[in-house]
């Protein structure tokens, strides 16, 4: 608008600054603590200006929590989630938008329902599945009598087992098993004009050719949006890795972080190494924040179109 509202502009800026202040102050305090020595961190009154120990503390935290391998793992987890999501979501959306078969809507709803229950809610049985990913099939074979049949005919006892605990597959698969990406793709595919499909068919392109040569190149922005969101979500996973990873060589950084500060209730009350813990917090926090800031446009678009 073009009206002059000097006072309101002042108020607007004041409100926005206050909001920014509230969001930034905690992180500022983290940075301050991460750059001080332990006595400085514990000093009363608190020292509110950064010290010069930032790099020292970051190195200490890095070694203390063995972040080297943890970071590799923390990269593998979101990368796997991003790739898996993009591939599977694109394929499924393609299958339910460009084909006219009776199962189209049932499949759509089956996928849709997965949006309702987050992993946290069904954590215990999902863990049991991860301990043996083939157990659903084993149970089905047992219940329907097929195990018995196979055993009687061939003498082989059916015992399917595929343990996913302490593996990258186990970390990644359950996070891919939701519908978020599918919907982003479905919405986009629905906007593809019929003429494009007809033209492709007329030129003799089969469905897979159409998918590969036309849809995939057209959906680049979609992919960027989905990738940004899924990277952040994957990087920040906490409960799932905490449960299924007991072998430190598969551990992820977010979980390791909480081990930097011993819990007050379990240790006798030693002074925790807050300066290292805060340096670790900074390290873990930085990559996804950088992704969001640099990929802001795609991030916002992806977030709004997927409902998470």
């Amino acid at each position: 608008m073009i009206e002059r509202t000097p006072w309101l502009n002042l108020v607007t800026h004041a409100i926005l600054f206050t909001g920014l202040f509230i969001l930034v102050v905690p992180i500022y305090l983290v940075i301050v603590a991460a750059s001080q020595t332990l006595p400085d961190v514990m000093a009363i009154p608190a020292k509110l200006l950064p010290g010069d120990q930032l790099l020292v503390n970051i190195r200490a935290a890095w070694e203390e929590a063995a972040f080297g391998t943890k970071f590799t793992n923390t990269m593998i987890l979101p990368t796997g989630v991003v790739v898996g999501k993009i591939v599977i979501a694109a394929l499924t959306a393609f299958g339910i938008v460009f084909f006219n078969h009776r199962l189209r809507m049932p499949i759509f709803w089956m996928v849709f329902i997965t949006l309702m229950l987050p992993l946290e809610v069904r954590i215990v049985p999902t863990y049991a599945v991860a301990a043996n990913a083939l157990s659903p099939f084993q149970t089905i074979l047992d219940v329907t009598g097929f195990s018995w049949l196979i055993n009687a005919v061939s003498g082989i006892e059916v015992a399917l087992e595929w343990n996913l605990l302490n593996s990258y597959t186990g970390l990644i698969m359950p996070l891919v098993a939701t519908a978020t990406g599918t919907f982003l793709y479905r919405q986009f595919f629905l906007t593809i004009p019929d003429e494009l499909v007809e033209a492709a068919k007329m030129d003799g392109a089969g469905p897979l050719r159409f998918l590969w040569d036309i849809l995939i190149p057209l959906s680049r922005t979609n992919m960027a949006a989905l990738a940004t969101i899924m990277f952040v979500v994957g990087w920040n996973q906490y409960l799932w890795p905490l449960l299924i990873i007991t072998d430190p060589s598969y551990g992820v950084a977010a979980v390791e972080l909480s081990r930097l500060v011993p819990n007050m209730n379990t240790t006798g009350g030693d002074i925790p190494n807050w300066h290292w813990a805060m340096a670790g917090t900074l390290i873990v926090m930085l990559p996804p924040v950088a992704v969001v800031i640099f990929m802001q446009r795609w991030f916002v678009r992806g977030l709004i179109n997927t409902d998470k």
């Binding site: 599977i88 499924t92 299958g95 084909f99 006219n100 599945v129 698969m173 939701t178 089969g206 469905p207």
Partner: peptide, 29 residues
């Protein structure tokens, strides 16, 4: 939509991975 592909085998093939994953990691649990 009015223009569709006819080959339902391919349709089954492309939705299979997602259905398999959500069966094992969502519906079963």
């Amino acid at each position: 939509r009015r223009a569709y592909f006819k080959n339902n085998w391919i349709a089954a093939l492309v939705v299979a991975p997602q259905l398999l994953i959500i069966f094992v990691f969502f519906y079963w649990p």
